[in-house]
Design a protein around this nucleic acid. Structure first.
Lengths: 346, 346
DNA sequence: TTGTAAGCGTTATCAG
DNA sequence: CTGATAACGCTTACAA
């Protein structure tokens, strides 16, 4: 019982009657050992239940087979949850296939996050890092620019990563998809409840919405929020208070979209006749409401899967191309339709 | 630029003009070094930007400051997401405070999971493991019983962990809370759409529901599901098809509860008058529906926080007591009320 | 109080 | 093709 699991390479070597290094070569499929001894070694190692010791390997060749990720949660904002889990699922499958693990730290403020990044870099705890939720002038980007020895992949638009490799979904395209969809329905005046201004992707979406709206001859108001349900309600109230109110509101997450729908209904508005509602990012919550909420779906797991080959290349020292994905789909549901007050233009 | 971050203990020793071991002692707050040299060493180490190399430390003292967790996702069932993220948040904060990280692997089938468990045990990749979603006769429990050298904490009822340390929320108590609540509302015939039978917690809830219902003189039907929206609909349809249908249905997750609500409404039933609906586990989706769904809330992050001290004790070789938490709260919302057909008893 | 040196399990170099 | 042997960076007896 309890095979004390302390079988080392030397044990195997002794048992097989060969040298230490012969075993290492055999086990790692490297040249420098005859086919016959290789087979013998493999057999013995197998039967003794040898497994590589991760610490020793890491110390010896400075590789950990580990990818690091520090997640900053606002603790109150659970909107990121589903994004993160989907990403994790995509990453997990590919990483698993390549025998890599994820080293994760969850913290609630950016300073702790920076401390951990610094420690991991110095301690050599990971072979590569993934950086999420990049902000304008993100200090993590600066940090890694100073440490070219550790590969970093930013899940962010290349325009904000200062040359660091990046993979992202094309938010400009996504924004257009939504605006065009509403335009076709006949909307002339839309509004957007965006996420926090500091996030790069918020900025990119802001710009894309404005550009596409004006290209279509539409007006687009915009408010920034912290993704919370409270601000979802608040922003909706403010947008609806204007005499000249928008006929459609796009929310930067599902949580705020649901709250927005509720606010509109509480004010006696009919959705979608009086107001159309769209959520950026689909989730189960969007199907729970009445009417259900039209959403821009993204294949987030796919983003995760595609990130892995990039990471592996980077770890190998090979150059990588940035990836810009467009895994979108407008999921049309009951919360959107033609505005009922388009008479003034026809 | 690019401080090549390769400052070792010997570098510090040389710079400080002391020996290798003196530095180690000083840096680790251990006796065997004078106060003056300790100070000097600390100052030099700080100025040189020394950070411990994790691999070397791990190899030397067989500790990784890492807790492992293998998550098996059904990939289609995202219901676990929020549970998992909340747990992670709770764990993360405490672990961070104690300078531990989480090593995570996400896989989609139990066999890969077992492979990883075996590898991590043999490779000494972690100081301790957390095991989730324990099943009846779980092979992971068997595995760790054979490896007493690696500490494991099961997030499960102690009755199914065969002596391994466990922390859990008291699902028996939670079940009672729900049944009693419905009983007080006047329900006599309730039903339950449970999770998969293989999970230990499903079994425990099953038993608790039956016991409490019969203690209250109520009837309680029960169906098992896979947590998916489809089966949520399906089970609801089957329960409502009976001439003598229940006046309340409890679902083992929020996803099925939402689907159940929709099915009932599609059949023209008024919720809660014709049918009350309760969700085990609260989430944002429960507040998105009309009416919103009454849910049994659990403080899951707290469970995560409380798990950490147990893990640390176990790593230290100290004995631990199992923990049984009752962090529940019935969140009463619009989906529950008195049944409208209680006339036959009064 | 200090320094020296052995060992942790691998990989990699360099003789044989 | 094989087998000693020296790294890797740290901890920890043990000697001085």
């Amino acid at each position: 019982m309890a095979s004390k699991s302390k079988v080392t390479i030397s044990d195997v070597a002794q048992a097989a009657g060969v040298s230490n290094s012969a075993v290492s070569y055999a086990l790692n499929d490297k040249p420098g050992v005859s086919e016959s001894t290789r087979e013998k070694v493999l057999k013995v190692a197998e039967s003794m239940g040898w497994k590589p010791n991760s610490a020793a390997k890491a110390l010896s060749d400075a590789s950990t087979r580990t990818i690091g990720m520090v997640i900053v949660t606002d603790s109150r904002v659970f909107a990121v949850e589903s994004y993160f889990m989907e990403l994790l699922a995509g990453l997990g499958e590919e990483l698993e296939y390549n025998d890599y693990s994820l080293l994760i730290r969850v913290v609630n403020n950016p300073d702790s996050a920076m401390r951990i990044h610094r420690n991991w870099i110095a301690a050599g705890s990971v072979d590569a890092m993934i950086v999420l939720n990049v902000e304008i002038g993100d200090s993590r980007i600066e940090l890694y620019k100073q440490h070219p020895e550790v590969p970093v992949l930013a899940i962010a638009d290349p325009s904000v990563t200062k040359g660091l490799p990046a993979i992202t979904s094309d938010d400009t395209y996504g924004s257009r998809l939504i605006v065009d969809y509403l335009h076709e329905l006949g909307h002339k005046h839309i509004a957007r409840v965006a996420g926090p201004e500091r996030y790069a992707h918020t900025f990119i979406r802001d710009r894309a919405f404005m550009a596409e709206a004006s290209a279509m001859g539409m007006r687009c108001d915009s408010l920034h929020s912290d993704y919370s349900p409270e601000q979802g309600r608040d922003c909706t109230n403010r947008l609806l208070a204007f005499a000249d109110r928008p006929t459609a509101i796009i929310y930067d997450n599902d949580v705020m979209a649901v709250e927005g729908l509720h606010v509109a209904q509480e004010q006696g508005l009919i959705v979608p006749d009086d107001l159309s509602i769209v959520s950026w990012d689909d989730s189960f919550a969007c199907t729970a409401t009445t009417p259900s909420i039209t959403a821009l779906w993204r294949d987030i797991p796919r983003l995760g899967s595609k990130a892995v080959p990039m990471l592996l290349k980077m770890i190998n020292g090979e150059p990588v191309e940035n990836i810009m994905e467009s895994p979108y789909e407008m999921r049309q549901r009951g919360s959107t339709g033609a505005p009922n007050a388009v008479s003034d233009d026809e």
